[in-house]
Amino acid sequence: MVRIPRLAAAVAAASALTVLAAGPAVCAGDPTVTDPHVLAHFDFAAGQTPENIALEPDGSADLTLAFARQVARVDRHGGTRILATLPAVANPQTPVLGAAIVTGLARAEDGTLYVNYVTGTPETGVWRIAPDGSAPEQIAQLPADGLPNGLALDEDCGTLYTADSALGTVWRVPVDGGEPTAWATGAALEPTPQLPFGANGLKLHDGAVWVSNTAHGTLLRIPFEHEHEHGHGHGQEPGHGHDRTAGPVETRATGLTAIDDFAFTGHGDTVLAALNTVHELALVRADGSHKTVLTAKDGLENPTSVAVHAKNVYVNSAAFYVQPNPDPNLLLARISKNKD
């Protein structure tokens, strides 16, 4: 049985931990987010709580439906179909949550999807979903006492990076499968006794791995460093070379109450971040200041992740502890041309 109330209690604790920092009400050059509307609704009772997003070239959205163990595709008109269901686990022991869930999602150029499956058993790890519709296949095993969450693919280097919310670790996983490596650790990535969700969302951007920490309400940047000089990685995506190590963790923003996943608005460092327990989407500027751009009045119910495609913003809402009528959904809005 899906134990969503346990998640609700854990995530709800975040609202008591941090206070949303007050940024300027208006800042010249800020992208604007307008015309929000719900594109698709999901079945809360069936565990269809949207967790993460990967976008298709045509603007369709691939979503993980966490407690249903499903990956679904929502087209631009709101039509939804299930792409894959991860196999049931007889006795899941998922840290904090108890139930087996799917979390982070990443897409390769050929349409292959990579998804984190978290069970508290040997099935915990990264799974591959081929575009031909064949059954999902586990390509890497991650620690059973971990909670791999956000996921990103560096296709040039054949590497996946995932943020472990329970173990406070960023794992590096070969895209062809094999032994994961603990790429980054430390106090900035760890959970707290009050809230057992540390490193959460993860993106590759401008020569670095960016990570949110839910318990601390922070947005972090971990630059790539090189053991040798033949790779640089100063573009929007990391550079070539397989020998990059993690540089010092930089805190880029604080006071982001219960931040979950996030997305960059363009080539600069401006971010849209899902603030789970306060039902908000925040615009986080490169200097760390931030403001609210969408709220519960726009349809957000425990937003979990964000994606940006052309002039569109996608926001998942999982509705983990919205009662009495939870409405897990996918919201679509417009974003102005980025000034950064």
Results as ranks from 00 to 15, higher is better:
Glu250Thr: 12
Gly247Trp: 05
Ala187Pro: 14
Asp154Ile: 06
Leu153Val: 12
Gly241Tyr: 03
Trp210Thr: 04
His240Val: 07
Gly235Cys: 02
Thr214Ser: 15
Arg244Phe: 11
Asn213Trp: 11
Gly217Phe: 05
Leu220Tyr: 09
Pro196Arg: 04
Val170Arg: 03
Leu153Arg: 03
Ala208Thr: 07
Pro191Gly: 11
His230Asn: 14
Ala163Lys: 01
Val175Gly: 07
His216Asn: 06
His234Trp: 02
Glu155Ile: 03
Ala246Met: 08
Asn200Val: 11
Val209Cys: 08
Leu153Asp: 04
Val173Asn: 02
Cys157Lys: 06
Gly217Ala: 06
Gly239Asp: 09
Arg172Phe: 02
Arg221Cys: 05
Ala182His: 07
Leu189Met: 13
Gly239Val: 03
Cys157Phe: 01
His232Pro: 07
Pro196Asp: 15
Asn213Leu: 12
Asp176Val: 05
Asp156Met: 10
Arg244Ala: 15
Gly231Met: 09
His242Tyr: 00
Glu155Ser: 12
Leu204Glu: 10
Pro238Thr: 00
Ala184Cys: 15
Ala208Arg: 02
Ile222Met: 06
His230Tyr: 11
Ile222Arg: 12
Ala246Ser: 13
Val249Met: 07
Gly186Leu: 09
Pro174Asp: 13
Gly247Cys: 10
Val170Gln: 12
Gly247Lys: 01
Thr218Leu: 10
Tyr161Lys: 12
Leu153Glu: 05
His205Trp: 10
Ala182Gly: 11
Trp210Ser: 08
Arg252Glu: 03
Glu155Gly: 04
Glu225Trp: 03
Glu227Ile: 14
Asn200Arg: 13
Asp176Gln: 15
Asp164Ser: 05
Arg244Gly: 02
Glu225Pro: 00
Ala166Arg: 08
Trp183His: 05
Ala246Val: 03
Tyr161Cys: 10
Val249Cys: 11
Val249His: 10
Asp176Pro: 00
Gly217Asp: 02
His232Glu: 09
Ser165Ile: 14
Thr169Asp: 07
Pro223Asp: 03
Trp210Pro: 11
Gln194Thr: 13
Glu225Cys: 02
Ala166Ile: 07
Leu167Met: 12
Glu229Thr: 07
Pro191Trp: 06
Thr169Met: 10
Trp171Asn: 04
Gln236Trp: 08
Gly168Ala: 07
His240Phe: 02
Trp171Leu: 05
Thr245Phe: 06
Thr214Ala: 14
Phe224Leu: 15
Arg244Pro: 00
Val211Pro: 01
Thr245Cys: 13
Leu160Phe: 08
Trp183Ser: 06
His228Tyr: 13
Phe197Glu: 10
Leu195Cys: 06
Glu155Ala: 15
Gly247Val: 12
Gly217Trp: 03
Ala188Lys: 01
Gly231Phe: 03
Leu204Ala: 13
Gly178Ala: 05
Gly178Asp: 12
Arg252Gly: 04
Val209Asn: 02
Thr162Cys: 06
Leu204His: 04
Asp206Leu: 00
Ala163Tyr: 02
Gly158Arg: 10
Gly168Val: 08
Thr218Gly: 05
